[in-house]
């Protein structure tokens, strides 16, 4: 798209169709779009928005590597006038006895992995049944599961907590895994069902005619084809669990051995809200994993997003 010399684009209104005949449609549209952006207002607005969306995070990132005394006495934008760099904030927040984010980091990992693997596996099986096993009442059951997406998890929290307490399981990893798995199921089933329906029926039927049971069809035929869909929902669920505050707060609260990073950092913001050297570094410790996962797998994430909202 960048092969066209920009000099011909000074005024988009002059790029009429005769001149650009011989280019593909996409190229013509690219020219038009560039014309649009070359209007100073449009590019101005785009740049202002991009800056507005980036600067707050950037400011906190710069702050997290400034010495404590500097953070208190001057703004992060003075960093270049007085460039003192330190990683002490990070080491204090990770290993300091009063913060020990390293422990909570491990907790977050331990919470997240099973809470991603379990609901996806269950949802895959359920979606398969809804898509490819004909049985009586299937439609009705699917609509019921679909409708459960509407239920806000708030409605379920207190009765669930009671149940966990009566089993003596509150404040353990088990209830966090279980809760996250349950809450993820309706959306996961719906999304994966959409993806499964896209697979040609002939493929499944051929395998069935050959005498393959449903279990075989599921593992041999469908699962390999569904890898992108699984990746899409996996990232979704990963971000949701890693970033969750409510579920963790309710079910494990302040239990140091179980609580994830989000709970800890929210607590820190409440009790030591002016200690920005800890808050800034702590926030980035909590953000680094989702940021990396997100940047690496953005494509799949976007796909999942579009499948969930536009196809519906």
């Amino acid at each position: 798209m960048t092969a066209i010399p920009p000099t011909t684009l000074t005024d988009p209104t002059e790029v009429d169709t005769r001149k650009v005949r011989g280019l593909t449609r996409a190229e013509q549209r690219a020219i038009a779009a560039k014309g649009r952006l070359s209007s100073p207002w449009a590019s101005g607005i785009a740049i202002v928005l991009a800056i507005l969306w980036t600067v707050p995070t950037f400011g906190l990132l710069v702050t997290s590597v400034r010495p404590r005394s500097e953070i208190r006495s001057s703004g992060w934008w003075t960093f270049l006038q007085n460039p003192a760099l330190t990683f002490e904030n990070y080491s204090e927040v990770l290993f300091g006895s009063s913060t020990s984010f390293a422990t909570f980091f491990v907790n977050s990992v331990v919470i997240t992995l099973p809470a991603v693997v379990i609901p996806i596996s269950l949802a895959l099986l359920a979606a398969y049944a809804f898509a490819w096993i004909p049985f009586r009442g299937r439609e009705l059951l699917f609509v019921a599961v679909f409708a459960l997406q509407v239920v806000p998890i708030q409605v379920t929290l207190l009765p669930l907590l009671r149940q966990y307490v009566s089993w003596g399981l509150e404040g353990s990893f088990w209830v966090v895994w279980l809760s996250h798995s349950i809450f993820a199921l309706p959306l996961a089933i719906y999304l994966l069902h959409n993806f499964m329906k896209d697979i040609p029926a002939s493929l499944v039927e051929a395998a069935r005619v050959d005498g393959a049971g449903h279990v075989t069809v599921f593992f041999r035929v469908l699962l390999p084809l569904l890898t992108p869909a699984i990746a899409s929902f996996g990232i979704f669920q990963f971000l949701w669990v890693w970033n969750d505050l409510l579920v963790a707060l309710v079910f494990v609260g302040g239990t140091t051995d179980v609580a994830p990073l989000t709970v800890r950092i929210a607590e820190l913001a409440g009790t030591r809200g002016s200690q920005w050297h800890l808050l800034s570094a702590g926030a980035f410790v909590a953000m680094v994993v989702p940021l990396v996962v997100f940047l690496a797998l953005q494509r799949y994430f976007v796909r999942g997003l579009l499948a969930g909202s536009v196809k519906g």
Binding site: G59, D244, L279
Partner: peptide
């Protein structure tokens, strides 16, 4: 613009 979607609401609040 998309990046804020990947971080937690708690993180965003602190930012």
């Amino acid at each position: 613009i998309f990046l804020p979607m990947s971080i937690s609401l708690v993180g965003a609040s602190i930012i």
